[in-house]
Each structure stands twice: as structure tokens, then as C-alpha cells.
């Protein structure tokens, strides 16, 4: 059994808005093992980005607020750290890759300087050493002519190259945990594959633990060993990649898998899950997916189901797994045609 590097316990995050309190994350439990890649999947508004930003403590406050929970990094609760100690963690122990490389680099600062900032801060490097390391990092992420490139500005790079720069910045101080918040969403498909290959390759080289936030199941199949499916601010199912793709038990996971376009499908229409995600300013009492679930029962709308442990790794929160529930077979459309492996 591998050691947990990061453990999230009963995390609750809310935002104060004019319309009232929005409960974006409602009791999330997660653990990340050393050297593993964990994917958090779910649609927009499911709380996956808020969870990841919470780990970095990048939730703006106000309006954001940690209601309860712990985020243990190597046993220390990050939520209890002072802002100063947290600054020492960010970028050196835990770092982050953002979604849109077109906006996540400062347009008025050379790429080299942006890479060197973290090195100077965390490793007390002087200018010369930091510049040298910046060149090495650019080389590591596969940017040609790094000596010239470090003097250039972000607008002189293409989208894919910028994302490589962002990755270089994130890896600059050899972090133990890397959070990648939809790292390929803003890129076109061929570049997506390159960036994923790069990330996989770097993970092998550096043995960094990765949290991958995405709604793209293709990316999950490609990179992750374990998957957590989020819906309505809660984790509804977790398991390793094979379990989630080949024997999912939660109807929301079925829906997600069904809505993936298949190569062998003859239909022009994409499958979709009918309905919209729940309003988290007034979250449902029971299972958040009940309103959209084709198999919902009376109990689903009233009580949140407990997790059922299906294997050592797979846990699912669904009333269908209760022994009193009717037996429901997963729909055929979840077929793994979309998952490349």
C-alpha cells in the first residue's frame, strides 16, 4: 500500500453571493498516493475546480469560505497554515497548471522571468543560476531554442507552446503534487495529445503525484490510474480506471460514459444526460443526481446514500447498491468504445 501524500477530509467550501450561500463543495473525501495520477471528472459546476483551488488555497475570500474539513499534505493541515507558510508550499511542494495558456501567462513579462520567479523565491537561486535552470526546464518540456525563447514574451508563443511554458513553471521547483486543472481543454486535439504525452513522460521522470481535473474521459483513460467522479459538490463514485470504465456502478458515471462520442456509432446525435445540474445555493437533501437519474427512487430524493465499498478501490454512493433496491443493469451505451485503452 502506497503512502498518501495528500488527503482531503470532509471538505466543504461555500461562496457568499447576493443570492445566498452557494455550497460548491459539500463534504469531499479524497486521497492521493505518492506517484499516482488521480483524475477528478464531472461537468461544469460539479465542484472539481473549487476542490483543486482549495488545495492551493487560491479561493478568493471573501466570497469563498472553508466551512469545514482538512486538507492534509504529508500529514499537515494546509487549511491551518498561515498565509506566509502557505506561500512557501505553493509552487515548491504543490503547484498548478491552469486551463487556458492564453491567459495564464503575464503578457508583459518575459517567459524566462516568469519561470525564474519561483526559483528565486523557493530555492534562493541567483539570477544566473535561475536563468540556466529556466533554459533546462524549457528544454525538458520540449521547447526548441530555449536560450532564445526565455527572452521572449508569451504572445510570441503558440497555444501549445505556452502550455508547455506553464508546465515548466509548475515543475520548476520539483513539486511533490501537481494539480492540472483541465490542462488540455483550451488546446486543439493534436496539441492535446502532445501535451498529455509530455505530462505522462514528465510524471514518469519526476515521480510527481498528479491531480488531473477534467471532463474529458479520453484524457482520463490516457493519464490517470484512479478516478473520482464528482457531481453536485460531492464525490459520487471513485475507483481505479478499469473499474470506472468497465464496471461503473453509479448512474451518473453511466451517463458520463454514454455521452462520450463513439467511433463505431452510426447515430449522428450525441447522447446527453437530460436535465441540468442542481442549484447549489439550495442543494437537494438527498442524492444530487436524483432529479436527472432514470432509476431514481423515493429514497434518493430524501437521503444521501452512503458509500458502498465494491472493492478495495471502488466506492460508490448510490441507493441502487442497497440490497433492498431493484436490480438495474447499466445501459449498453456505456460501451468503452470511446476509451482508447
Amino acid at each position: 500500500m502506497l503512502e498518501n501524500i495528500l488527503e482531503i477530509k470532509d471538505l466543504r467550501v461555500s461562496f457568499e453571493t447576493y443570492a445566498g450561500e452557494v455550497q460548491a463543495v459539500r463534504g469531499v473525501n479524497l486521497e492521493l498516493k505518492k506517484g499516482e495520477a488521480l483524475a477528478i471528472v464531472g461537468e461544469s459546476g460539479s465542484g472539481k475546480s473549487v476542490t483543486s483551488k482549495s488545495i492551493m488555497r487560491l479561493i478568493p475570500s471573501p466570497p469563498g469560505k472553508f466551512k469545514s474539513g482538512e486538507i492534509l499534505f504529508e500529514g499537515n493541515d494546509l487549511l491551518k497554515l498561515s498565509e506566509k507558510s502557505m506561500q512557501k508550499m505553493r509552487g515548491s511542494e504543490i503547484s498548478m497548471i491552469f486551463q487556458d495558456p492564453m491567459t495564464s501567462l503575464n503578457p508583459t513579462m518575459t517567459v524566462g522571468k516568469q519561470i525564474m520567479e519561483g526559483l528565486k523565491k523557493h530555492q534562493n537561486m541567483n539570477k544566473h543560476d535561475a536563468a540556466q535552470r529556466a533554459v533546462e526546464l524549457l528544454e525538458l518540456v520540449g521547447i526548441p531554442n530555449p536560450e532564445d525563447r526565455i527572452k521572449q514574451y508569451p504572445h510570441q508563443f503558440s497555444g501549445g507552446m505556452r502550455q508547455r511554458v506553464v508546465i515548466a513553471i509548475a515543475l520548476a521547483c520539483n513539486p511533490k503534487v501537481l494539480i492540472a486543472d483541465e490542462p488540455t481543454t483550451a488546446l486543439d486535439v493534436t496539441i492535446q495529445a502532445q501535451i498529455l504525452d509530455l505530462m505522462k513522460d514528465l510524471q514518469k521522470k519526476t515521480n510527481t503525484s498528479i491531480i488531473l481535473i477534467t471532463h474529458d474521459l479520453g484524457v482520463v483513460a490516457n493519464m490517470a490510474q484512479r478516478v473520482a467522479v464528482m457531481y453536485g459538490g460531492k464525490i459520487v463514485e471513485t475507483g481505479n480506471v478499469d473499474e470506472i470504465f468497465y464496471s461503473p456502478k453509479h448512474p451518473y458515471t453511466w451517463g458520463l460514459l454514454s455521452s462520450m462520442p463513439k467511433l463505431d456509432s452510426k447515430s449522428d446525435e450525441l447522447m446527453a444526460i437530460p436535465g441540468t445540474p442542481p442549484d447549489l445555493s439550495n442543494p437537494p437533501k438527498g442524492c444530487p443526481f436524483a432529479a436527472r437519474c432514470p432509476h431514481a427512487m423515493k429514497v434518493c430524493t430524501e437521503h444521501m446514500p452512503e458509500y458502498t465499498e465494491l472493492s478495495e478501490t471502488q466506492k460508490t454512493a448510490c441507493w441502487l447498491l442497497d440490497e433492498r433496491a431493484p436490480k438495474v443493469e447499466p445501459p449498453e451505451t456505456i460501451g468503452v468504445g470511446g476509451a482508447q485503452k
Partner: peptide
């Protein structure tokens, strides 16, 4: 903007983020 989040994610102090970025 994202690059301010990014600057904070590097672990820069608040004054450094404000002044430099």
C-alpha cells in the same frame, strides 16, 4: 485574471504579485 492566480500559485507574496504582475 488567470495570470494573477498563476503568480500566486508560484508562491509569490501578495506585494510581489501586486507590484510585479
Amino acid at each position: 485574471s488567470d495570470y494573477i492566480d498563476m503568480a500566486r500559485a508560484k508562491g509569490l507574496s501578495r506585494p510581489a504579485v501586486v507590484i510585479k504582475h
